[in-house]
Design a protein around this nucleic acid. Structure first.
Length: 322
DNA sequence: GGCCTTTGACCTACG
DNA sequence: ACGTAGGTCAAAGGC
């Protein structure tokens, strides 16, 4: 792979020029448009190339201190937005102080990446749990003290069904502010495995599922019945039937019996879920970026993987201002 | 019969 | 200390 001089510096330049369609990785057809519409800072004026070696390149830029609480910073978040081939975006909270953006070599292996995360004191090795997918998180958060880092993804129904891990549901809860229940799952392959995930429908877009992953699988993905069935049954691969996506009010109107309510809701859930084949491992719909942030000093690391770039036609980098 | 889901109760963090 | 909300447990039932 001829990746010795991938022009990652263009990312920094694109964030300065306020001009769309700057080529970020021309060899891979990657373009970036500048939406740096809140903080418009010089990222790395002197950075012209990225040598693809094992050493990270840091881009330092100052960011105004945020005095607001976690819940209130949503209008100022660093994000990367892939426009094609799949629609999703990822956000993390803007660091509270001087920030380092490290562009990791596209050839970085997963082990190297884990090591780099640890160097930044991320404190947890969170891996995407989706077979196709190594998708990037929408948010990275912890909801409670001493709780492991949780990565939240926006997934379509197709992407949700393409989970290579086996899960069992252990709870369901209606969350304040959302009409849809949150479903709680643990890895069912091993009792020692601490991997968990939460699935709920997005209140903004009913076709989108918010999937939060925490913990880490300490074993290989199982060749589960469900997984095997995906081949055996010609890709009749569906969401776990237990994913209740029925809105609160609808359920309350559906029946006075709680058991019937759930039965109804799951049937509906299954019926509206398509039976398209799962995405193949190695397809273009892999994770596009990894973005992690050091809690301590606010360092942000952007991981760009070689496979990730394939098939991407546009990319936006910047901070939101909503 | 075993695995999985359901769901009320319970636990815990947080304000 | 208390109320609230998110997260988890576990018995019961379904498949």
């Amino acid at each position: 792979m001829e990746d010795d001089h991938r022009d990652i510096g263009a990312i920094a330049r694109s964030c300065n020029m306020n001009k769309p369609n700057n080529v970020v990785a021309s060899k891979l057809g990657l373009k970036a448009s500048h939406v740096w519409n809140y903080f418009d800072r010089v990222l790395a004026p002197g950075m012209n190339s990225f040598n693809g070696s094992s050493e990270s390149v840091s881009l330092d830029f100052p960011i105004a201190r945020q005095e607001r609480s976690y819940d209130q910073v949503s209008n100022q978040q660093f994000y990367l937005h892939s426009i094609q081939p799949v629609q999703f975006f990822q956000q993390i909270v803007v660091p509270q102080s001087r920030t380092t953006v490290a562009c990791v070599p596209p050839t970085t292996t997963q082990l190297e990446w884990i090591d780099l995360q640890q160097q930044l004191d991320i404190g947890a090795k969170i891996h995407p749990n989706f077979a196709s997918s190594m998708k990037s998180p929408l948010t990275q958060s912890t909801t409670r003290k001493n709780q492991s880092i949780r990565l939240t993804y926006e997934l379509s129904q197709d992407e949700l069904t393409n989970d290579k891990w086996a899960w069992h549901k252990y709870g369901q809860k209606y969350i304040k502010g959302s009409p849809f229940p949150r479903n709680y799952y643990k890895c069912s392959t091993s009792k020692q495995c601490e991997a968990k995930k939460q699935i709920e429908k997005s209140s903004k877009d009913e076709n989108i599922f918010l999937v939060s992953c925490s913990g880490e699988h300490n074993h290989d993905p199982p060749m589960s019945r469900r997984y095997l069935a995906s081949f055996k049954n010609n890709f009749k691969f569906k969401l776990p039937k237990s994913i209740n996506i029925f809105p609160k009010e609808s359920i309350f109107n559906a029946s006075s019996s709680s058991s019937k309510r759930i039965k109804h809701s799951t049937d509906v859930a299954s019926s509206i879920i398509g039976t398209k084949p799962p995405l193949e491992i190695g397809s273009k719909n892999k994770m596009l970026f990894s973005v992690v942030q050091n809690k301590g000093d606010g360092k942000v690391k952007v991981h760009m993987n070689e496979d990730i770039f394939m098939g991407i036609e546009e990319l936006q980098i910047g901070t939101t201002s909503t």
